[in-house]
Write a protein that binds this DNA or RNA. Structure first.
Lengths: 120, 120
DNA sequence: TGCCTATGTTGACGGTTGTCGAAGCAGGTG
DNA sequence: CACCTGCTTCGACAACCGTCAACATAGGCA
C-alpha cells in the first residue's frame, strides 16, 4: 500500500451537534461546529466552496474555480483548509485535481440552524 | 431622542445571498455571507450564541450565559462581535443587559445551505 | 530522457484575532 | 452622596491567518 493515505480529518462533520437553538452547546460541540463555520468564514473560501457546490456534477477541477482574485498557491491553501474542515474531498484524475462537496455537510450544517421546538 | 443610536450594522443579514449550491457566489455575496459564518466560527461565540438562542423566550441576560470559561471582558467582546455581525441584538433593562437572536438570521443562514435544484 | 502544465508545499511578512487586567460607565441601594 | 454590581471599553500581547513568490511534485507528451 503506498503511503498516500491522507492525514486529513474529514470525519468530524456529519453527526455533529443538535440544533443551535435546542440547548446551549457544550465546549466540545462548539469546538466541532465552529471548525466548519470558521472554514466558511473567509470570502475566498466561501466562493471556492460555492463554486464547487454549484458546479455540474457536484465536483469541479481546480482550474474551473481558481478565478477568485488571489494567487494560485492561495487557492490551493484555501482548498486544503476546506478539506481539513471536512467540507470538501479531492481526487486526482490524470492531470487535474477534482474537488467535491462532502455530501452530508450541507444538511448537517442546515440542521444546526434549525429552529428547535424547545426554542418557542 | 438621546444620542444612543448604536453605530453597529445589524442590517446586512436577512436578504443576503442565494443558496451556496445555486451558482458561484460573487465577491460581494461572499463578503456578506462570510461575515456571518466568521462570527460563528469561534467556539466561545458559538456557545454564547447557542446559549442565547436556546434560552427561554429567545433572550438571555449576560449573567445567564457568561459561564463559558473565559473572562467577563472576553465574553463582552464576543457578544459585541456577534452584534456587529447582525446575529444578536441587545437591550439594557435596568441593571442587566439582555441579548436576543435576530429573528431572521437562522432562516437566512439555513437557506444558504439549502440544496438548490440546479445542483443535481 | 527532458520539457511543459497543473497543483501542492514552504517560508516569510503584515494584518487580524482572542485573551486578559485595569479602568470606565450605568443603575440600583443605602 | 457613597458604594456595590453588571457590563463595556481600553491597552497590550501572543497566536493565528491570508497572502505571495519561490520551489517542489505529479502527470502527460515528445
Amino acid at each position: 500500500m503506498p503511503p498516500l493515505l491522507e492525514p486529513d480529518a474529514p470525519e468530524a462533520v456529519a453527526p455533529c451537534c443538535p440544533p443551535l437553538t435546542e440547548r446551549p452547546f457544550t465546549a466540545e460541540e462548539a469546538e466541532t461546529a465552529a471548525r466548519m463555520f470558521k472554514a466558511l468564514g473567509d470570502p475566498v473560501r466561501l466562493r471556492l466552496f460555492s463554486a464547487v457546490a454549484s458546479h455540474e456534477g457536484g465536483e469541479a477541477c481546480v482550474c474551473d474555480i481558481s478565478d477568485v482574485g488571489v494567487s494560485q498557491p492561495t487557492v490551493s491553501h484555501h482548498l486544503k483548509k476546506l478539506k481539513e474542515a471536512g467540507l470538501l474531498t479531492s481526487e486526482r484524475r490524470g492531470t487535474w485535481v477534482y474537488y467535491r462537496v462532502e455530501p452530508s455537510v450541507l444538511s448537517a450544517m442546515g440542521k444546526l440552524l434549525t429552529i428547535s421546538p424547545a426554542a418557542a
